[in-house]
């Protein structure tokens, strides 16, 4: 099925990560730490989606 689910998952968690990190910085740190963790996870999923697309193009 044509959709790579890693893309929306990565995007959603990256957005959550950015929002929570900024909110956490602004308001002491569970929000900041959770935000950074989600940003890292979202980034990893986006990278995996890009890598999958690149591999498919090569093949």
């Amino acid at each position: 099925m044509g959709l790579d689910i890693k893309l929306p998952i990565g995007l959603m968690f990256a957005i959550f990560g950015v929002i929570l990190s900024i909110f956490g910085l602004v308001t002491g740190n569970i929000n900041l730490l959770s935000g950074l963790f989600m940003l890292a996870f979202g980034g990893f999923m986006l990278f995996a989606a890009w890598f999958t697309k690149k591999s498919k193009k090569k093949a």
Partner: peptide, 17 residues
């Protein structure tokens, strides 16, 4: 709200298949 938008967006993205 963002979660609900993504959930519905996945359904919409798959509609054409």
């Amino acid at each position: 709200l963002i979660y609900f938008i993504f959930v519905l967006g996945i359904g919409w993205a798959l509609k054409k298949y």
